[in-house]
Structures are given as C-alpha cells and as structure tokens.
Design a protein around this nucleic acid. Structure first.
Lengths: 255, 255
DNA sequence: AAAAACTCCGTACGTCGAACGACGAGGAGC
DNA sequence: GCTCCTCGTCGTTCGACGTACGGAGTTTTT
C-alpha cells in the first residue's frame, strides 16, 4: 500500500530501460515479449481498471506469461511505472496558436486532457523526474510555446513550471471525480444526498458565515463541483499574470 | 498498494467520526484509548516514517494494543486517513495582512508550509472532500481573505480554488524533494551525478535545442531544482492575475 | 445476580511484491 | 555438427498487508 512510487529503482537501470539501451541478450531463448509490450499491457490495464489493479500477477496474466517472467523485462514495479509515465508523455503534441498566450493555453489544456485520459497519472507519487525520451521531448515542445517573447531562460522555465503546476493541482479534482464515478459507482449527487442531511445537522452556519454563504452559492451553481469551469477560470488568471510579466519585460527589456 | 485512499468508507460513518458524533458507549469496559489518540499516533507515525509505514499493525504497536483493537475506534484505514487529514487542517490560521493580496499570499504560504510539514498529505488520493470541522473552518478562514473586495460568491470560491490548486501543484516538487532526501538518503545532487553522465550520452541536444539551453541554465542556476523559488515566482503571477480581475470588477462593478 | 453491551485480541484468509533456484532452449566455439 | 554455457521462463515460497470472525473478559443496566 502507498507504494505507487516512481523513481525508486536503480536510476541507472531505469534510464537504460527508458532509452532502450539495455544490454541485449545474445544467447538463450528468444524473448517472447518486449519491454514495450509489458508497458503497453500495463497502461491498458490501469486505464481500464485503475492503479490498484496494477499487480505483477495481473499484468503477467494479461500477457499470457507467468508473474515472475515480467522480472525479466522490468526490474520491478517502480521501474514499470516510470516507463508507463514516459510512454504517456508521448501523447503531448507541439502547442498550436498564433500568440504565445494561445500556445501556453494549449499546453495547459493538453496536459489537462492527458491526465483526464489517464486519471491514475496524478495518483502516482513521483519521487524523481522521469527523464525518458518522451518527457524530454515534452519539455522541449512546451518551452517552445514561450520562446522569443522576451523572457530569459530562467523565466521560461519558471513560467512553464507555473502553468504545469497549476494544471496538476486543478486536474486533481476532475480526475478524482471521474475515478470516483467509475470505481465506486456513486455519483457526486448520491454522495451529497447521503452526506448533506448529516452535515446540515452538524454544521454551524453562524460560526462560519462566509463558508455557509459561498458554499451554498457555489454548490448550487454547479452541482457540487465543476472542475472544468474552475480550470477555465484559473487558467485565464494565470495567463493574465504571465502576460503582465511579459509586458513588463518588453517595456524595460533590461530588467 | 495504491490504496492510500481517503473517502472510501461509509460516508455517514466517517462524518460521525469526524464530528465526534459516534454513539457513545454506555456499558462495557472503559475504552483504553480514544479516536483522537489513534489519529494522533497515526499522524506522528506517518510524519516520521512516511505514508508507507502506516499499517494497522504498526499504529497498534505504537499505541500498545493489538492490531484488531483499532477497529473498535476506527472502521478501517480509509476512515483513519480522513480523520488524519481533517486534524491537520486545524493547523491553518486566519490569514493575516492589510490588503487582500497579502492575505491571499498568506493563505497560499500557510498551505505550502502545512504540506511541507506533512509531505505525505499530497500522496493521499482523496476521493471525496473531507467534510470535517477543521476542513470547513479552513474553508471559511481562507474565504475571509477574499471577502469584500468586489468579487461575487462564485468568483470568491473560484479564486480560492485557483490559489489552492496552484499551491497543491507547486508543493509537490518541494515535498517530493524532502521525502526523497529523508527516505532514500540520496540527495538531488547525488542522483544527478548518477544520472547525468548517462543522460548526456543519450540526449540529443540538436533535436531539442530549447530544452537543452533552458534546462542547462535552469539547472545551473539552482542546483537541479528550487521549488521554493519557483513557488515564489508562480504565486506572484497568480496574484497578479487575480489583481487584474479585482481591478476589472471595481472599474465596472456591474459586469 | 443475571443479562446485555461493549472492549480487546488470537487466529486466519486472501492478496500482494518479490526472492530463489530448477528447467530447458538455443547461440558460440570448436 | 556437437557441446557447453548463457539466459529466458516459471513453480514455489516468504513475509507483510488489511481485516473478518468469534470468544473472553469487563462494566453497566435491569
């Protein structure tokens, strides 16, 4: 439990796997599978049934081999998760848009959509950055959205970090909603129906007037939660903040 | 594995525990412990040794009782985690500052510090909001930072969500760094020393010129990573973005 | 004094990641 | 073309986990 952890294995070994530089087998029987096969099966499994379903036994079963055979291809579960993550990074495309603002918004929305396609991605506790080929390509593509608009290299990195951090935070709610609905079969509405009466009984509106007022309005406006709306709102603010920085830089290029 | 999940038990039962409304025992032997004792021990354990160390057996051992005794106080691990989270929410204080901007910055920094004090908080996959007394008090306090500055209730909620989402995303890196250092004993520098040479060998700077340039500059500027600096940068941009919204609202109060 | 309700806990089950070592297939050296 | 060594494959096993079950002991109610 609590060990869906990436970046745990021998860093060197993980990197070799990520870049396909593992020393090849010369002798011995032909391998029935490839590392890519294992990664692909694992991603399919987790997309369909969630991170909790990712077990050595289950992946092996899906591939038609015995559990221990997997250890031939991948040193362990942590390394497998790293490989899965890097594989998914390959889904990010070059940001499109005429202005940098549109391109950065595209970066944000692509990352948002990526996580929604694979909600388990945010559940993984990454201990170290996954330095695989796809991750690096992604970094490159995303930085290109900020190239040539007057920011220096450090600012570009930090601006991108800001956007990605915000997306990561915001998408949690949306991914959670999706996962919960699929996994527990209880919709937000049903949950509130269970919880609401008790909360009303116990909640002291006079102690927390602002929470009571705002919570009520927010709850009524969008049935309990509207992660997509919140993201659209937040992204505009983040972009506004960046725009101010860019404007300031172009006014006084020296500072 | 992958089951550090909050909000999993019977919602009703969890809420009763959170609000201390469980039907009290009248007959039978006196309880040796209280729910609060269990929660406290669990938090101490996890703060010291990480979320992976949170096992029924271990908490029971720390408390000097048998594993199964814990089930007298808490229905199961998911409920325990919810209780732990709500307890920590009590560490948030009323935001201080003369202007709303200072107050919101304080909210952000308090949340940042809270997670750094308990890095495992972000590893927990929350499936539903924890509607405990401390969480609601926290919501109230944080909203108060945005009260009376011209935002309507929906905007207040979304502005707060933006700030908290950003903090949640940004603090990941910092919490990760701390956890990794304590747990694996390998510093970022040592890790890069292991990884760097291989990466240099495999990385194609001509395919990814921007990543190469910016990554190099960013890496040199702060040894590999500077989450605190990135957070300070990002928070200013977020606040700038909010300030623009507030200014727009006060100029045209109707819109 | 008896009954009821509660705390506590020994035992047990199923599941997980992973270690170990036996097996057998097939390329390398002759 | 034969032999040997290398390396995939997998059956078995271990220890740890969450927690279900049911009994023993303790306190309050009747």
């Amino acid at each position: 439990m609590s060990d869906d952890i990436s970046g745990r294995g021998d860093p060197r070994k993980t990197l070799e796997l990520l870049w396909g530089r593992a020393p090849r087998a010369s002798r011995g029987p032909k391998a029935r599978l490839s590392v890519a096969d294992v990664v692909k099966a694992a991603i399919a499994l987790v997309d369909a049934e969630g991170l909790a379903a990712l077990t050595t036994r289950r992946v092996a079963e899906d591939l038609g081999v015995s559990p221990m055979s997997l250890y031939t291809y991948v040193p362990g579960k942590p390394e497998l998760i790293d490989l899965m993550l890097d594989a998914l990074m390959g889904e990010i495309r070059a940001p499109s848009g005429a202005t940098w603002r549109e391109r950065v918004a595209d970066v944000a929305r692509q990352n948002w959509a990526l996580v929604l396609r694979h909600p388990w991605m945010i559940e993984v506790v990454t201990h170290r950055p996954v330095l695989g080929p796809n991750s690096i390509a992604k970094y490159h593509l995303e930085l290109s959205a900020l190239e040539g608009i007057g920011l220096d290299d450090l600012e570009m990195d930090r601006a991108l970090t800001l956007v990605l951090d915000y997306v990561a935070g915001a998408v949690r709610g949306a991914a959670r909603e999706r996962t919960v609905k699929e996994r527990t079969g209880m919709t937000d509405r049903e949950w509130w129906a269970q919880v609401g009466p008790f909360l009303a009984e116990v909640f002291d509106a006079e102690r927390f007037p602002i929470a009571a007022r705002v919570g009520q309005v927010a709850g009524e406006a969008y049935g309990a939660h509207d992660p997509a709306g919140a993201f659209a709102f937040g992204l505009e603010r983040v972009l506004d903040g960046l725009e101010l920085l860019v404007a300031r830089k172009s006014r006084r290029p020296a500072s």
